[in-house]
Amino acid sequence: MSISPVNRRVPRLLADDALIEQAKTGDHRAFTELVRRYEETVYRFSFKICRDQDKASETLQDTFVNVFRKLDSFDGKAKFSTWLYTIVTNNCLMKRRRRKSDEMEESLEAYDHAHLPHDDTQHPVLATSAGDPADVVITKELRGILDAAMEKLPEDYRVVFVMRDIEGRSTEETAGVLGLSIEATKSRLRRARAFLRDQLHPYITAHPEVMS
């Protein structure tokens, strides 16, 4: 479908698909609008994976340079946001310290083998309800614990946890971004959740008010 001259002048009014097609024709205003539209999404996702403002800012730059260079190859079969997540993930993973990450990955495999704790009932603070994120107050101490736990998680596990549990993306989309099978993605999510849960458990049990 051709793009009308009127719409060509106002990229802000275009839907993503039309905007991408217009950007592919070399329309710099359309590309700039695409960047404006997804700048926050890319930065937030980068920050959640990189856990560092400078690295996230660098990844933001790298991602849109990659998008500019590869936009012609985007065929629209996947959602544009999925394609962006893939580029962000690749940029973040390239920056990781591979040796440390691989060592941690081996230890996470232990979470596959009957890691279920058997003394949780000793902690009556663990009610059935998980609560609403909007009701939670993240104190400086809690934020430090959440960040420290996430820092310990290898980045490819982090991507799975962030995409599935924080961003609410599907298992299929997450698997596609990482080039993993559905089963491998589920396995990583299980290990990531169990690992983070174990890291946070002492704080949650000692501070029941945090989730009340």
Binding site: A127, L142, L200
Partner: peptide, 20 residues
């Protein structure tokens, strides 16, 4: 155990979103 898994996720979802 299930409750603590859900709470873990809730806590991470409660972290304020950063801005560029």
């Amino acid at each position: 155990y299930l409750s603590s898994l859900k709470k873990t996720i809730t806590l991470y979802k409660a972290i304020p979103e950063p801005s560029v």
